[in-house]
């Protein structure tokens, strides 16, 4: 659980935690762990709304590379 999940996984895990708590089969110690984890997941999801690491220049570079590769092959 130390690895930082992507927002999709974070979202799914969050849904899972909610379902678990809803079922009410978590003891007190576990509950506090789950709530801590949920807070982290919520932070990941919210962060994603405001941030993206994509870069047009980087994509153009990749495109050029793949295009020159395919033109070399033909």
């Amino acid at each position: 659980m130390t690895e930082k999940p992507g927002y999709t996984e974070a979202f799914r895990e969050l849904q899972h935690i909610v379902a678990e708590i809803e079922e009410g089969q978590i003891d007190v110690d576990e509950l506090s762990e789950k709530v801590k984890r949920a807070a982290e997941l919520i932070r990941i999801c919210k962060e994603k709304l405001h941030n993206t690491s994509e870069d047009v220049q980087q994509i153009l570079k990749e495109l050029e590379e793949s295009e020159s590769k395919s033109s070399n092959q033909t």
Binding site: Q15, V18, G24, I26, V35, I42
Partner: peptide
């Protein structure tokens, strides 16, 4: 779609808060 995602996360956060408080009261 963004707003929907945003709302879902918010609702889950609220829901977890409410459930946890409820759970603790129950304990």
């Amino acid at each position: 779609s963004f707003r929907d995602f945003d709302n879902k996360v918010r609702n889950m956060a609220d829901h977890i808060g409410r459930l946890t408080r409820h759970q603790i009261t129950e304990y």
